[in-house]
Design a protein around this nucleic acid. Structure first.
Lengths: 110, 110
DNA sequence: TAGGGTACCTACTTAATGGTTAGAATTATT
DNA sequence: AATAATTCTAACCATTAAGTAGGTACCCTA
């Protein structure tokens, strides 16, 4: 009689959840993506849209999102400065995640 | 001529993204939910399934998930002890989020 | 000339997270 | 009699993430 052992496939480096969270797991990351959505957003608009975020965190996250190619940044050579952020193709592909998050929040928490 | 101003609805306390992330935003939370899925999982199985998590974090997260009613815990009065975790109704409702996360990871990152 | 608006950056401090080690409890096995 | 197995706690320290406060730059308006 053999011991029946449950099959477990260890989920480490290649784990898709882990990989996604590495980019999206920051405290503010998904909130920012949610706010930009399929629109254009200026820095100041984002700041007003997420009042509880600090300026440091906002730019830090935006820089990180640009680095990870989820967001594009377009700065106009004007005074006062104007900078626009929008989601890339890749960034847009994260919206289904955010939408599910919104759905869950609306139906169960808020 | 009026200045056309963009309409912004500040997303603070009642924001569904924020509310969801408050419960699900931990570094390991979604990984654990992903592993339990619609199955039963013992503590040791989870540990093996997520090799990079420390015991402390695993228990800490599991306790938090039980507190937040996403997971139920059933301990059998045996020696050696046996404890089973599974998702609650509410926990099961987070699976669509995790699935989207998996999808995104598989298609774009891994 | 003082202040406002916009988009940052930098340094410092605090809070959150994570790792390590040790140990408890109880029985079967060696 | 010592060891292994399993689930968990507690204490301590290290690392990382996040918050706070200040400063820069430029032009316009008052």
């Amino acid at each position: 009689m053999e011991k029946k052992e449950k099959q477990i496939l260890p989920c480490d480096e290649g784990c898709p959840v882990k990989a996604s969270l590495k980019i999206l797991g920051g405290k503010w990351t998904m909130m920012i993506i949610f706010q930009i959505n399929d629109d254009v957003m200026r820095y100041g608009e984002l700041k007003r849209a997420i009042p509880s975020i600090s300026e440091k965190m906002l730019i830090q996250e935006l820089n990180m999102l640009v680095e990870n190619k989820l967001v594009t940044k377009k700065a106009y050579p004007e005074i006062p400065p104007r900078v626009e952020y929008r989601l890339t193709e890749l960034g847009l592909k994260t919206l289904p995640i955010i939408n599910k998050l919104v759905e869950f929040g609306l139906e169960n928490l808020v």
